[in-house]
Amino acid sequence: MITTNTDSQKNEKIVTINCQFLNQMKLGSEFNATACINCGTCTAICPMEINLLPRQLFRYVLIGAEEKVLENVNNIYSCLLCRMCEENCPAGVHIAENVRSLRTYINREVYGLSRS
């Protein structure tokens, strides 16, 4: 576990990096957002409007900020998986599949739903 202070003036900006989470998302799932260019098309076009911020969520995953991801649980399960964002993503990121991968992670690791 690595703790990084992104702004020495403000403690609330401390981000905890969870390497285990990072590896699990990289190796154990279909998650892939490295092509994301952070353009914001997905947010602009989302029928859920500003509530969902895939690009922000994906940045948290890419740096292993599990806590930040888990702060967004309601947003992750609010995604309609309608793929409107994917249809318009200039970088061809599989946004819906990435969101689904996050649900799978949360179901297993937070809700313990793999053993039912």
Partner: peptide, 9 residues
């Protein structure tokens, strides 16, 4: 189940 990420089930 698939959409909600219940992959094991």
């Amino acid at each position: 189940a698939y959409d909600e990420g219940l992959d094991d089930a």
